[in-house]
Design a binder for these strands. Structure first.
Lengths: 260, 260
DNA sequence: CCCGTTGTTGCTCATTACGCAACCGTAACT
DNA sequence: AGTTACGGTTGCGTAATGAGCAACAACGGG
């Protein structure tokens, strides 16, 4: 799971990897008991208990009283200070994504432009989601994602040239790697006010995104819905686009970006 | 290091504990290299490298490009969503604490009242600080800390009765455990507008705190400075109190609590 | 009061994590 | 321009740790 594009042969430290998986589970589910954690990780209850105990000793996990389920501990605040730039998206984006994911049944993401890539800053899984992956904190290519296209389409021509310099990586068989063709797509995205991604990041995956506007009408983020191709059909796109626009406006307001 | 008051004999999972120590180091220092991390943790460079690699694979650690120092990764955003209630203190309190800690040379903390205890939500270490402990995310007793006394003093008489019900734990030889005596101290705190803690939490430790006001004049937090008794002398208190008050007002403004 | 479930802990052992040595790459110095 | 030093990585072997098992404790529900 080398998510940084580094195909290293180095083995992960298994117990550290498991401890992080515990935290991911608690972050996703809100709370969980030892038995549930053990089942989810595929380890013995005693192993789960010891992992949780270690995280608890460091305040990264806590529980109400002596019994009851465990949850993410406030010791996390020590690390939150290192990612303050995106904390507004976490605080405000979470409820917006959750509400939309519940309505659509699909996974909803918010991404911002960060150092030439799309950076996912908030996510909520839909009830129908099969994949458990959390993209938050991960960077994805602009040319091969719906959010990326939205962010590119909103950039100036100069910025687009800069962002698209270099080869466009074929992430999947259907990835658009011709810069001329991509610019046409971006032109269309600017006109339509939304972008789609049909199996361009990975086979079988469809996504659609709309822009999130700042106070001056500029695009500060993109919000998207993603799911398997058989569920996110062309026919369903208009409905999803409209729901995304409503959520986008809600997000703008909650972020304090009241558009004139 | 059972910070939850649980004197369990269970051994910590060493590699998980070390991984968290890596994160603490990166959060505290901003960035660090493998050699520095290894030295700080007292492990071999290869061990540090593998720990960092595992955290990197989960986006909890990242680095610029292929080389250069490591820092806390944006994958932390996945966990920040679980502590959204206190994220404003992290985002706004950090710079205020850092600025004051630089000026005073002592450790500065912000604490809020949470479930009958003082919850530390932001901290910056002073240059003269000897202890490396980060209190953020930890809960401390109200009666034995300067912040706790400030928060208690601002509570109504009924709330004070409720918060002080039960025995007052003697945390140190000088802890005030007599409720009548403590109420006198709280009365004085309300009058003075600050509270001191002279070796009441632990021997050799002095601290002083002032309230942080909300929009309606209510006390929403306390900000404190702490250090060894020989540096935080009685003589130095007026200067420190004044600096804390300035920082407190700054914090209120930054939090959006403009006092009428 | 009994049963079932959750969570903890002592113990043993196998696997993992760790340290060592060697190596690679880069930067700084001569 | 070449050499040296430093930071970081990786293969390998081994010992220590982490994991699973079994037994037990505590609590809640019927």
């Amino acid at each position: 799971m080398s998510n940084n594009g580094e195909a290293r042969d180095t083995a992960l430290v298994q117990s550290v990897d498991r401890a992080v998986a515990v935290l991911e589970l608690l972050a996703r589910n809100g709370e969980a008991g030892i038995t549930e954690i053990a089942a989810e990780l595929g380890v013995h209850k005693s192993s789960a208990s010891r992992l949780v105990y270690t995280l608890q000793a460091r305040d990264l996990v806590e529980q109400d009283g002596e019994r009851g389920p465990f949850r993410i501990g406030l010791g996390m605040l020590r690390f939150a200070g290192a990612v303050t730039g995106q904390l507004d998206y976490v605080r405000v984006g979470g409820p917006v994504c959750t509400a939309l994911a519940d309505r659509l049944g699909e996974t909803v993401n918010i991404a911002i432009l960060d150092s030439g890539v799309a950076l996912n800053v908030s996510q909520a899984r839909g009830s129908s989601a099969v994949a458990a992956q959390n993209w938050v904190g991960q960077r994805t290519p602009l040319h091969a994602t719906s959010s990326g296209k939205v962010l590119l389409a909103a950039a100036s021509a100069d910025d687009q040239d800069r962002l698209l310099s270099g080869d466009l990586e074929p992430c999947a068989p259907r990835t658009i790697t011709d810069p001329v063709k991509l610019r046409c797509v971006l032109q269309r995205t600017a006109e339509d006010g939304f972008a789609t991604c049909m199996e361009e990041l990975e086979a079988g995956l469809h996504a659609v995104a709309v822009p999130v506007f700042g106070s001056h009408g500029d695009v500060v983020a993109a919000i998207s819905a993603a799911g398997p191709a058989y569920r996110l059909s062309q026919k369903r796109m208009p409905e999803i686009v409209e729901e995304l626009r409503v959520a986008s406006r809600d997000l703008s307001v909650r972020m304090g970006h009241s558009v004139l």
